[in-house]
Amino acid sequence: MSGIAEDSRTGVGKGDGVIVPTFDERHRAPVLVVPRIPSFDLAERRRYVIQEEPSEVRLPLDVLLVPRPGASVLVVSLHGYTDRKKYSLPRFERLASLSTLDTHVLYVSDPTLSLAADLSLAWYVGTASDDLVSRHAALIAACAAQLGVERVVLAGSSGGGYAALALGPRIPDSFVVAFSPQTRIGNYHAPHVNRFIRRVFPQFASWQEVEREYPRRMNLCLDASTNGGPKGWYVQNNRDPFHRKNHMAPYQKTVGPGMRFFEERHREGHGPPKVERVLDWVSAAIRHPDSPPAA
């Protein structure tokens, strides 16, 4: 983590304490590499790489803001599992589908994945020395304030849903739409959890040790029992018994009344709804968070 590594696809280089403009061809956006939360461009699509000091211990935050003049809602897109053989970083999920919404959209890539080429899921947790939940919450809140929005909708599936649930209580006027999320990292499938621990927390022998050290970052049931949890909609695939039992059920027991739970039929096993159904839920949250979409 010694600064922002050169990326052959985008030409992003070290900021060295100044704004460094370049261009991201893949996401069709100019890039600003900056040392702190910037003044966001409220009119043009732009990617921001924020490398705060000390760069040796802080991962660079990487976001793409697509503003929509006159919009009153900011949608934040958080990704889940990323097949590193299929996708390159940064990962800005649902870029095509969410661009159809009449809102500002902030796409947030999990910089933890940059720590290892075989790391596909990291829940936006960060490292022992870098609490990414707090840093991303500050970034999103600053972006929302500069845009002057009335509400922030945090949307994510699986590991992205975990991040949305973690961020919700920390961002004013926010509303979560989480699709079949994890709620306790240690309750997820062992190969993914063990790889995450080895790559991100190598000084610990097990996920149990990491959870004892960072309980609220690793277990959202503990987090919700402390702060009441976020407001929003938890949308569970009823064909995914593993997540119903190991993640939804314990979270229901601890989260406050601001979170409503829904079950509906999606794909067999774990995975997000179809794109059209994701848009149904996110669009409903944009219009009126008291009115979920029709079944």
Rank of each mutant, 00 (worst) to 15 (best):
R265C: 08
A294V: 14
N246Q: 14
P293F: 03
V282N: 04
R267A: 11
G271K: 00
E268G: 00
E276N: 13
P273T: 11
D240L: 12
G256H: 00
R239Q: 10
P250N: 07
H266P: 01
V282L: 09
P289T: 06
W233M: 01
H266F: 15
P292S: 09
P292T: 07
I286T: 12
A249N: 10
G258D: 03
E276V: 10
D240T: 03
V255A: 05
L279P: 15
V235C: 12
W233P: 00
E276P: 13
P293H: 02
V255L: 02
P289W: 05
K253Q: 14
V235P: 02
P273R: 11
H288E: 07
E268Q: 11
R287P: 06
P292D: 13
S291F: 14
R287D: 14
D290R: 14
V278C: 08
D240E: 08
D240W: 00
G256E: 06
H288W: 12
Q236I: 00
S291Y: 12
S291N: 15
F242H: 09
D280W: 04
F262T: 04
Y251C: 00
L279Y: 12
H243V: 01
G271Q: 06
H243M: 09
Q252A: 11
G269V: 04
Q252Y: 09
L279W: 02
R244P: 00
S283T: 15
Q236C: 08
N237H: 06
Q252V: 02
R267K: 13
H247C: 13
E268S: 06
H247R: 04
V278T: 13
R239P: 02
K245V: 15
V278H: 09
A294L: 13
H247Q: 15
K253V: 11
P292E: 10
P273K: 09
P273G: 08
A294K: 15
A284P: 10
R277W: 07
Y251A: 01
Q236M: 13
M248N: 01
N246A: 14
V278D: 15
N238C: 11
N238K: 09
F242N: 10
A249C: 03
R267S: 08
W233C: 07
R265F: 04
H270Q: 04
R244S: 07
V278I: 14
G271N: 05
P292L: 03
Y234H: 08
R267E: 08
F262L: 06
P241V: 12
W281G: 02
Q252H: 03
G256R: 06
H266C: 10
P289D: 12
N246S: 14
A249K: 08
Y234G: 01
A249S: 14
F261Q: 03
P250I: 13
N246V: 09
V275H: 03
R239A: 05
A294D: 06
S291T: 03
D290H: 13
E276H: 07
E263K: 06
P292Q: 09
T254L: 11
H247Y: 08
G271A: 08
V255S: 00
S283E: 04
T254D: 12
W281N: 08
N238D: 07
N238Y: 10
E263Y: 01
R287H: 10
H243N: 09
S283C: 02
P241T: 13
K245P: 01
P292H: 07
P241C: 05
E263S: 11
V282W: 01
A249V: 01
